[in-house]
């Protein structure tokens, strides 16, 4: 049964990847006028234009271009960067680890803040602690990361001097960007933890646990948090898109050599094949993570896999 669910989920994911590939292809045709003109600028020899047009396959009929393009995407063949002439896949593979590192660190920051905050708010609901924690959460979703980043640099790197201003050297350089990127997610997750805990707080199994004589803290940590975990996992998968979007800005602020910074550079250099490739890779990772969270969810919660497969 679980295998069946897995198979269906993977197949739909594949269809979605196809859809994304088509949309990425369509993107380049959104450019008003001739994409080759836009890429090369005005003062170019007609022969060079033709050469690029041919190299990008833009001289073929549209459906042929689409099929070729999608076919190559599925083989992870993105062609060459117009700017550096190197294979795009190589460049992306160089940059990807930095973004994964930053994203994971932001996730850790978010969890470390969110769980204690959410649990405290639920334990002491409608007290000052609750109000304070949720006030922080509201502030966290509202604070722009392009404002918070420079403030953290000012305080943490220039005044206190504990952390480097920018770049990616050693784990110390990871802290400020991870905090910048993780705060919004911490805010969202802490609210989720609080509300799911409040939902289960009066369930029978919680009452049983209390009746056994367990302390309220232990009841929440041992029995309540387990149930809060499921929605949080789904939320994390869905929030990855926001996290990656935030990574563009965070990486730019901190000169962090990841995919986000690569995208911004590619756009500034009008390196469109590179832009398409980064969009595809980012979407692909988003899809993969969401498939994984769905599968994890089904594995953790038997009700879902039974319902889906019947």
């Amino acid at each position: 049964m679980f295998i069946h669910y897995l198979l269906i989920r993977l197949l739909t994911a594949l269809a979605v990847v196809f859809g994304v590939a088509v949309l990425v292809f369509v993107l380049i045709h959104l450019v008003p006028g001739d994409p080759v003109d836009v890429m090369l600028g005005e003062s170019v020899q007609p022969a060079d234009k033709e050469a690029l047009r041919h190299a990008l396959g833009l001289d073929q009929p549209l459906y042929q271009q689409l099929l070729n393009y999608v076919g190559r995407l599925f083989q992870l063949d993105f062609g060459h960067s117009i700017y550096s002439k190197r294979p795009i896949l190589d460049i992306i593979l160089e940059r990807l680890p930095a973004t994964i590192e930053l994203g994971s660190a932001a996730l850790v920051v978010a969890m470390v803040i969110a769980f204690p905050l959410g649990v405290l708010a639920a334990l002491y609901r409608n007290t000052l602690i609750d109000v304070g924690a949720m006030g922080f959460a509201l502030l966290g979703v509202s604070i722009p990361n392009f404002w918070m980043g420079p403030i953290l640099i000012m305080v943490g790197a220039l005044w206190v001097g504990w952390f480097p201003v920018s770049g990616r050297e050693g784990w110390l350089s990871l802290i400020l960007p991870a905090m910048t990127l993780g705060t919004a997610m911490a805010a969202i997750v802490s609210r989720m933890v609080r509300s799911t805990l409040l939902e289960v707080i009066n369930e029978d199994f919680m009452r049983t646990a209390r009746a056994k004589g367990l302390s309220e803290v232990w009841v929440i940590l041992r029995h309540g948090l387990r149930n809060a975990l499921l929605p949080v996992i789904t939320l994390l998968g869905l929030q990855l898109g926001t996290l990656l979007g935030g990574a563009v800005i965070t990486e730019t602020i901190f000169s962090w050599p990841g995919i986000g910074q690569l995208t911004v550079e590619a756009i500034q250099r009008r390196d469109y094949p590179m832009v398409q490739a980064t969009i595809f890779i980012i979407s692909l990772s988003y899809i993969i993570v969401n498939v994984m969270t769905d599968i994890l969810y089904a594995w953790l919660d038997p009700r879902i896999r039974i319902q889906e497969s019947s």
Binding site: V20, V31, P32, G241, V248, T263, I267, V275, I279, S283
Partner: peptide
């Protein structure tokens, strides 16, 4: 679902960069 799979900010960034 397909549209949801695009990290929106990336998509907006690209389209805005392509358009005047």
């Amino acid at each position: 679902d397909v549209m949801l799979c695009f990290p929106t900010f990336f998509l907006i960034l690209t389209v805005v960069a392509l358009l005047p």
